[in-house]
Nucleic acid binder design. Structure first.
Lengths: 246, 246
DNA sequence: GTTTACTGTAAACGGTGTAAACTATGATTC
DNA sequence: GAATCATAGTTTACACCGTTTACAGTAAAC
């Protein structure tokens, strides 16, 4: 029986304030040195070593916090759409992801293109962007019942990984007959990630970014495997208005 | 008329040695501080300010050098395939890009997911990865004459950008009736970039990376718009053997 | 041959992550 | 309740970083 002493409470609170302060610093000043974080909290830099073994570990904590926060933003964006319209909810979350990434390039870089930050899904599966998108796609399937790829039709290597009980599909809690969904999710994630990263790092013409041309094309590509082709005429103006909001 | 003095020659040589040394350091030690670069050349750190206005600018120079070197590697990989088989050449270059990225994560990060390094195509269009891939795709078109997307069928915003005389398609030197090719190139670049970056930053299950499942799927997706569907049975084993080489 | 412009140096400034030794204090044990 | 222990903070120090300044030597230009 572990009792939570008064000191444990304060410790938890301090840890939270450290991460939160570091996050604010990287957002507002694109930097989170130990000294500046400590200064904000009225502490000294070495004290932070009671909470993180290194600066790198603190960065990882911040990355996780940002990811969790992003996840909440995605859910909020989805919830601004009708509860019975999962397609709209998915698109809204996707647009929100892009909008956030383009507005917070440093944070995006910290979380999503950081050699020191491994896959977050494994550490905090509950509240990560990946899990959120997975849930949204599952909603879409629940309503539209688009065909799930048959594992036997896929690359045998891939099928074996998906069937594995300790594989990524099992980790998402997908039942055996729905593991093909993980493949769809993964492929969608590749294109979303690739498009947004390319835009964030300006590896495409600025005009293409402004008009969200690549992003639009990516969404339209994803519509078909998700069984939303018939809804496209309805979804297109929605996408336009969501993009215009920014 | 400007004469090249003996000092100019030495200066050019020193600059080259600086960039080359910095590159070696980031490759081998994942770091390129001004002091360590200077030490390697028997100089002191402030001397480097005669060649780069800041550390950031030196990073940009190194990024350009890496990009140019990568471009040469891609060409070399392509040249290991028959000259009259542009499909094989394109695939070989693509596999080489992925192989290099996974083996040199720090360098990939420096060049392709760096907030401080803008689009390299604009600075040194001649010898960048983007231009190399463009040339390879053009080779494919030259042989297979797959249909080029009609600008009128595309998003009007996109068509306007592609038609623009100072647009990205014009920069690649594409004649008017082939500007749709740029769109294909761009879309291919998105998926290649996205797949490789996702693998480099380990945002997918390690087993999926090991078996190159996402990468394979991405290649197969690109085959159709490039008119290579009929060649797929021939290209698949080639892809396998290229992937096995690593 | 003198002046100018360039390429290097040494010294220093404020900043960084991190380690070690030390201190106050809440938690635990007799 | 007093003595012990573990914890969370301090101060000091080290080696490193990018950058600025003032200065020296030397090739180039007049």
């Amino acid at each position: 029986m572990t009792v939570t002493t008064q000191r444990d409470l304060k410790r938890a609170d301090t840890l939270q304030r450290i991460v939160q302060s570091a996050r604010r610093l990287v957002t507002e000043h694109g930097e989170m040195s130990l000294r500046s974080v400590a200064r904000e909290l009225g502490m000294t830099a070495p004290a932070l070593y009671r909470y993180a073994a290194s600066h790198e570990e603190l960065v990882r904590m911040v990355a996780m916090a940002i990811d969790a926060d992003m996840s909440a933003r995605l859910v909020a964006a989805a919830d601004r759409q009708p509860a019975d319209d999962p397609a709209a909810r998915l698109i809204a979350a996707t647009v929100e992801f892009r909008r956030w990434a383009l507005e917070n390039r440093e944070e995006f870089s910290l979380v999503f293109t950081n050699v020191d930050v491994e896959c977050l899904d494994e550490v905090q599966p509950a509240a990560s962007c990946g899990t959120t998108f997975a849930a949204l796609i599952l909603e879409v399937w629940d309503k539209y019942r688009f065909p799930i790829p048959d594992l036997d039709d896929l690359d045998p290597h891939l099928a074996q990984i998906l069937r594995s009980p300790d594989g990524p599909a099992a980790a998402k809690g997908l039942p055996d007959d729905m593991r093909g969904l993980f493949w769809l999710l993964q492929r969608g994630w590749v294109t979303l990630y690739g498009t947004v990263a390319l835009e964030v790092y300006r590896h495409v013409d600025a005009r293409l970014v402004d008009q969200a041309v690549l992003f639009r094309a990516m969404i339209e590509d994803q519509v078909q495997p998700l069984g939303l082709t018939d809804d496209l005429p309805r979804l297109r103006p929605l996408l336009d208005s969501l993009l215009a909001e920014s």
